[in-house]
Amino acid sequence: NATRLVEQFIERLIEKNPEELQNEGILPQGIIEEWRSGFDEHVLVGMVPSARHYEAYRKHRFYHIPVKQLKKGWQTARYIALYPKRGAAPQNGVTCFGKIAAVNIVKRSAITELPKRSDEEYVRFEVESWNFLQNVIRPVGYGIAVYAMTTFNMLKQAKELPELFMKSSEEIALWRILRRLSDRIRFDLDARYLDQASKITAYRIKNVSIRLGDGLLMITNGTKHKTIAAELLRKQPSTVFREVVGMMGEGRDQKMNLAKSTLR
């Protein structure tokens, strides 16, 4: 009947991601690209070593880093975000960001806001203004040694530092699926510092652990395991969504069965 058709339509909206809805004609063509263009600009998240540096950066609206420490791709940054290490600010974590107004290569001695006698070359980023994040992105046991690159979209949505690490389209696709289920997603990286890590070793959402590697998605909940092809993240993300939801339900079923057996 009509009520069931409406229910089925709503279920499809919940299960499918924006790309699938656009392909089916539910969302207008081009709307996703237009939305992403404003959020996928790159952000350089720079480590702040001391309270003196943090105060100078905020007061004089700039950030600086040695040229020799920069890696390929830093030029794509449109924003700077500050990550004061423990003790450098009242709160440890990514606190604020600002749009880059200008980029200059200067001698270290020319940075008078933080005096130091040195002819080493530095890149100086001038920032239009600093905007504080609504919530500090917490380190949760991780850190940044020098700097890390992320996107504006990730910066605005992340709650914990490892979320800024995501690089591959598969990692981002999986994260987007999990964010539809919860805003409390935990990540395990293969190194303590984001700029030294090479991969995400596991995603954790509620009672489920998910590992992505070798073209496979391995979903685990207690003693229950399910392995599916990672290409489904691109081809059929709604299938991945259903599998994760199903495994989350498996955990509840296991607990209920255990409780029942205890009461017998």
Rank of each mutant, 00 (worst) to 15 (best):
K85V: 14
R86T: 06
G87M: 00
G87S: 08
G87K: 09
A88G: 07
A88P: 12
A88V: 04
A88Y: 13
A89I: 08
A89N: 01
A89T: 03
A89C: 05
P90K: 14
P90D: 15
P90V: 00
Q91C: 03
N92E: 15
G93V: 02
G93W: 07
G93M: 06
V94E: 02
T95Q: 09
F97H: 08
F97K: 12
F97Y: 15
F97D: 01
G98F: 01
K99D: 07
K99E: 14
K99R: 14
I100V: 14
I100F: 06
I100D: 09
A102W: 06
V103D: 07
V103Y: 01
V103A: 05
V103C: 00
N104H: 06
N104V: 07
N104C: 07
N104I: 08
I105Y: 05
V106G: 07
K107S: 11
K107L: 11
S109Q: 13
S109K: 15
S109V: 13
A110F: 12
A110H: 15
I111N: 12
I111Y: 05
I111A: 06
T112H: 11
T112P: 05
T112G: 07
T112R: 14
T112N: 13
E113Q: 14
L114T: 06
L114K: 12
L114D: 07
P115A: 10
P115I: 02
P115S: 07
P115W: 09
K116T: 12
K116F: 10
K116S: 09
K116H: 02
R117S: 09
R117M: 06
S118P: 01
S118F: 10
D119R: 10
D119H: 15
E121K: 14
E121N: 13
Y122W: 08
V123L: 07
V123W: 06
V123Y: 12
F125L: 06
E126Q: 07
E126N: 12
E126T: 13
V127D: 03
S129Y: 10
S129Q: 09
S129C: 03
S129I: 00
S129V: 00
S129H: 13
W130A: 03
W130F: 04
W130S: 00
F132C: 04
F132S: 03
F132V: 00
L133E: 12
L133K: 05
L133Q: 03
L133F: 06
L133M: 12
N135M: 01
I137C: 11
R138C: 00
P139K: 00
P139F: 02
P139Q: 00
P139H: 03
V140I: 15
G141R: 02
G141L: 11
G141C: 04
Y142V: 08
G143K: 09
G143E: 14
I144R: 03
I144C: 11
I144M: 08
A145Y: 13
A145I: 04
A145W: 14
V146W: 06
V146I: 14
Y147F: 05
Y147D: 10
A148Y: 10
A148R: 04
A148V: 13
M149W: 03
M149D: 09
M149L: 15
